[in-house]
Design a protein around this nucleic acid. Sequence first.
RNA 1: UGACCCAUGGUGUAAUGGUAGCACUUCAGAUUUUGGUUCUGUCAGUUAAGGUUCGAAUCCUUAUGGGUCAACCA
Length: 563
Amino acid sequence: MNSEERSLNFIEQIVETDIQNKKNKGLVYTRFPPEPNGYLHIGHAKSIVLNFGVAQKYGGKTNLRFDDTNPVTEDTEYVDSIQEDIKWLGAEWVGEARYASDYFEQLYQWAEKIILDGKAYVDDQSAEIISQQKGTPTQPGTESPYRSRSVEENLDLFRRMRAGEFKNGVKVLRAKIDMASPNMHMRDPIMYRILHAHHHRTRDQWCIYPMYDYAHGQSDYIEGITHSLCTLEFEVHRPLYDWFLEQIYTQETVRPRQIEFARLNLNYTVMSKRKLLELVNKKLVNGWDDPRMPTITGLRRRGYTPEAIRTFADRIGIARRDNIIDVGLLEFSIREDLNKKATRVMAVLDPIKLVIDNYPNGKEEWLETENNPEDESAGKRKIPFGRELFIERDDFMENPPKKYFRLSPGNEVRLKSAYIIKCVNVEKDENGVIKLIHCTYDEESRSGSGTEASKRKVKGTLHWVSAQHAIDAEVRLYDRLFNDPDPAGHKDVDFKEFLNPDSLTILKNCKLEPMLANAKAGEGFQFQRLGYFSVDKDSMPNNLLFNKTVGLKDAWAKEMVKE
RNA sequence: UGACCCAUGGUGUAAUGGUAGCACUUCAGAUUUUGGUUCUGUCAGUUAAGGUUCGAAUCCUUAUGGGUCAACCA
């Protein structure tokens, strides 16, 4: 509905211009280049939707490429999870997944060529010295004493680096560019370092590894990537990206171009892999797939759908200015999707017993109810009704405020898809806590019976579950993980200080309609009047586990806040 | 204190020299056997000052504010 009128984002505009100008023969080829050192999060989803979306829109293709040039932090666990998450999101990369490590030999050969061209040299200095010589953003650097080594010596040393003759950190290969450049990244950046480490794919084949700046652009080039999209912090790397490409570029091939866009920030959460890893390692959450995590796997376990995440990514747009998206927009997107799809069921999370005094003892009825009022094709089902029911504790008040139109003494409400009942009195325990609500029902008022009484309008409608038929379940409620809108944005306070102690609430005594006994892991439902809930992966038929995905909009709660 | 980038309602994002629009949010109302959904209405914006132009959110200058850059990480 909006696609025909939607204006182009700035990257699409660039792509269209390039196509018109027949740049790269009019091809569009993008890539999604995660480093396998962590799980994908919602920020990656933005990048995935962008990269795959742009290519698809213009008849192009997208590669998945693992940027695996640092064996110390990378692992196949991440390689697997990343592929699973991308597939789940519905993106399809062309052919097999690629790896920067597939190109190590080519990268090495090009490095020798650059040495031969006199544009790279082996430096014997320590990391500290090299760092000192880099200067600062306001002061130029100084040149390394090894900068003017002969080509022959450089080549010999570089080959011996590869051969494993040196220990970690003893030597590096540096590009010979400009130590006085105002751009720090151009001050003779390191191309290769020595790392005697086991790589998850190349195993012990290499003991020198290329740095990101050298590997990334060349990998783009090898794959024929036309538009290399990345986040804003790589902007200052672009001159270097171009410089490395310039060393090996030949006219007849595709010339990749790096374009930066603003990364996604969500309020009340953190989005850096480092911080997410810290939460996992310190067991402040229950793993990468904890439903409170902004990871793809966490959102999936929480009950988010790929469609909702994609629409969200679409809604937030692509631009070059820093942004902080309100999590409310993410929540809106999942509600919108689930509202169309989720079967409505009866579930009472905080049960209180109710007895209908004038309903025959031992009688049961199976009443018809619609599965989804938003989707007639979803059909109908029967739910059991009886003399004793559970309703939500919140749905009864002995002394209600004026606008309360749920159950209270002397007041009438409709039980959804069942009868109109009236509260006659309550029983309390010695502490004054209500333990049983006595009601009478209007026998003529059964939903759908067509009688005058069934058409009566009452203010409130409650969800309920038959006590005799109810099944038990554990339900996990989630709130935002952090109490602060920008937990990582405080210079003097660690982000973990803002963790919300109430981000997880476990409810053990929930009562569900019997049909839910067969619910399968990952399946999502709307618990009538409460919100959307999804079956946890650890759920068992005799130990049902639900995760709250998101609550329904709650006008009553809002009203109460105003008081 | 250098280089580079950015600046449109509360939050995002359009308008590509010619009527500042859309979404979320806010608020109000209608409908409703979910205080949901849907529908209608509503509040609210071009950082500032100069300049160019018949006309500037858009081009230029300056200021202000924000961001990025000094890993043998990506």
